[in-house]
């Protein structure tokens, strides 16, 4: 049985090509925002070139070190993916299949669920309670964006949280890098997030015909928003799944925290509303809520039809990277002890 390996040169090439494409797209669509940003156009390009150079440097370093027979963190990661590619594929497809296996409508629930939620909340919050802020345009779409992003994230976390404990029988018998379990759970839930973009865009399209909301080129930035969100979820998933092994209380605690988090995120209300009610400090605090940034990112793309401000990209990037680092560190530090506790 030979171990499958990727050609690092090829993978590196793809990595660089993909990032180039992504950056070019951002440059193109976010041109007005680039011109308006604080550091100016040359400053922006300097930062962008710096990030790109860093990527190229690491990729080249990885390839060079591989040739010299030494390993790098990135190279190791890529080879783990290569070695366990088939397992990852199987686990992701299992989770996805299982989710709707015994339901009649099957995968349509991925579309229906956010739509129905939106409908209920729209009726409740635009008729029963008036939390609408006059500054919010297109409240239905505003709600839908928030619901899709937050529920997607919440679903990822709930699935990933039990990744280690529910696979206990395997972990104690076969050696597989344990990080595969939470990551595949997040990935299979991410398929749902990606699928829920279809009703989001469809509803926006139909709604827009009547209310004058048009989809613009900015929707090409949706993948950027999803990459930020999913990597944040992966970090959170790693953190939760490893904590869960040691303290089963996390399961119940997270139920409360995620609800708090949902209300702390402007899904049904807006930050403007907080300000109007004199809760300026809450509005200021909102800056520290990563979910607020992801939700706002999505709304800017869909409702405003333009790219978010450049600072938003940076904040989202930092949140995702930070969460990945924290989750990864905690997971790595505790994974050897999992077997003893599950």
């Amino acid at each position: 049985m030979d171990v499958k390996k990727y050609n690092l040169k090829k993978v590196g090439g793809w990595l660089i090509a993909l990032c180039t494409l992504l950056l070019l797209m951002i440059d193109l669509i976010a041109w007005p925002q680039i011109k308006a940003c604080r550091i100016g156009v040359p400053g922006f390009f300097a930062v962008e070139a710096g990030l790109f150079a860093l990527l190229v440097f690491y990729t080249v370093r990885m390839i060079v070190r591989e040739k010299a027979g030494k390993s790098t963190a990135l190279g190791n990661l890529i080879q783990i993916v290569a070695k366990y590619e088939f397992l990852i594929e199987q686990l992701v497809s299992r989770d996805f299949k299982i989710k709707y296996k015994r339901s009649v409508l099957g995968v349509f629930w991925s579309f229906l669920n956010p739509l129905l939620m939106m409908l209920v909340q729209y009726v409740v919050f635009s008729n029963l309670f008036d939390v609408k802020d006059p500054s919010i345009r297109h409240y239905a779409i505003y709600l839908l964006c928030g619901i899709v992003i937050f529920n997607g994230f919440n679903d990822c976390c709930n699935q990933a949280m039990r990744a280690i404990t529910s696979n206990a029988s395997l972990i104690t018998k076969v050696y597989v890098p344990k990080v595969i379990y939470p990551v595949t759970k997040v990935l299979s839930s991410s398929i749902n997030i990606v699928l829920s973009m279809i009703p989001l865009l469809l509803v926006t399209l139909i709604y827009g015909l009547f209310r004058g909301l048009y989809i613009s080129w900015a929707v090409l930035l949706i993948p950027v928003a999803l990459v930020f969100l999913i990597s944040f979820a992966v970090g959170m998933g790693m953190l939760l799944s490893s904590l869960m092994v040691f303290f089963h209380d996390i399961e119940f605690l997270w139920g409360v925290i995620s609800m708090m988090w949902m209300y702390a995120t402007p899904i049904i209300y807006s930050v403007g509303l907080l300000e109007r009610h004199g809760a300026q400090w809450l509005a200021n605090l909102m800056q520290f809520n990563p979910m607020y940034h992801y939700v706002t990112f999505m709304r800017t793309i869909i409702i405003d039809g333009c790219s978010p401000a450049i600072s938003e990209y940076l904040i989202c990037l930092i949140c995702s990277v930070l969460m990945l680092a924290v989750g990864g560190a905690v997971f790595h530090k505790t994974e050897d002890k999992f077997v003893l506790y599950i």
């Binding site: 088939f86 199987q90 686990l91 299992r94 299949k97 029988s169 076969v174």
Partner: peptide
């Protein structure tokens, strides 16, 4: 493996062969 420890009861036998095989580290 302890018999059946990697099984998923909602999947068919066919799907379980691939899932279980992947867990044991076989290639497709």
């Amino acid at each position: 493996l302890e018999l059946g420890s990697g099984f998923d009861y909602d999947l068919t036998g066919h799907e379980n062969i691939y899932l279980n095989g992947a867990i044991l580290g076989y290639s497709k």
